[in-house]
């Protein structure tokens, strides 16, 4: 009879080990590339808190949008703008009214040369530079905002001939960090020193929010993830204090 008891015990142990793998689900997430660092950390905390796993796929928001419309298996979509999630809700790829702001983008005018950009952005009016870098405003959210800023300051027409445009904000950063463009509009998140919470190198100007329209980085639950507990949990977790603290640490504003 001992052997039978032992057999039961083995089954019990086996069930215990099996348990987490049946309850913990995996969800596939498309993430705007500017949100790479915070999202990587959020995913780790998410797994600790819920034992669900978030698999992250980084890329430009526009690319992910096109992929989702062609049936990509993403379940949650963190876009850098509001436009794409709303469009997906309209076209029926996303759960209606599931979109929410997860972070607010912060723009800086930055140069790799220390002391080059003043803290009022006067250089835009007086500077004698050959190139100014920005993300392509025809599709990149950071570029749209950068153009709005130059318009508010009445320097857009003057500066347009000096534009060099990155396909996304990472490329824009590379133009400036390699000194090929003297300065450029990039994400605060790209140059923040997370220990001090300030711009870590070169020189920069934090652009005040009132110089541009709202810059709401918006997420949406896709229909593919509507039944997946992990996808639903991730959407909730993005609004949790843990996630918000990480988002702020990496140089993003919090949703209002």
């Amino acid at each position: 009879m001992l052997s039978r008891r032992f057999f039961r015990f083995l089954i019990a142990v086996w069930l215990i080990f099996l348990a987490p793998s049946t309850w913990a689900e995996t969800t596939l997430v498309a993430v705007a590339s500017d949100f790479t660092k915070p999202m990587t950390e959020i995913a780790i905390e998410f797994q600790k808190a819920t034992s669900h796993e978030a698999k992250l796929s980084f890329g430009s928001s526009g690319k992910a949008f096109a992929q989702i419309q062609s049936g990509a298996p993403f379940e949650v979509y963190l876009s850098a703008s509001e436009k794409y999630p709303l469009e997906l809700e309209k076209s029926g790829f996303a759960v209606t009214d599931s979109h929410f702001v997860y972070a607010v983008g912060k723009l800086v005018l930055w140069s790799a040369t220390p002391g080059y950009v003043d803290d009022q952005g006067e250089i835009l009016k007086t500077g004698n530079f050959k190139h100014i870098a920005l993300a392509d405003p025809s599709h990149a959210p950071y570029g749209v905002v950068a153009e709005e800023v130059m318009k508010s300051l009445n320097v857009l027409d003057k500066l347009r001939p000096l534009f060099v445009m990155g396909e996304n904000i990472s490329q824009t950063f590379q133009f400036v960090s390699t000194h090929n463009a003297e300065l450029g509009f990039i994400a605060f998140a790209q140059v923040i020193d997370i220990n001090s919470g300030k711009i870590g190198s070169g020189s920069g100007w934090h652009i005040p929010d009132n110089l541009h329209g709202p810059f709401n980085q918006t997420a949406v639950l896709l229909k593919t993830g509507a039944e997946n507990p992990a996808a639903l949990a991730l959407v909730d977790f993005l609004k949790s204090p843990t996630a918000l603290a990480i988002i702020e640490k990496y140089g993003f504003g919090l949703p209002k």
Binding site: S60, G62, K63, A66, E87, D136, S138, H139, A140, E167
Partner: peptide
Amino acid sequence: SVQIYNHVEAL
């Protein structure tokens, strides 16, 4: 090629 890509990204 960049122009086509721009069109695609801008939907």
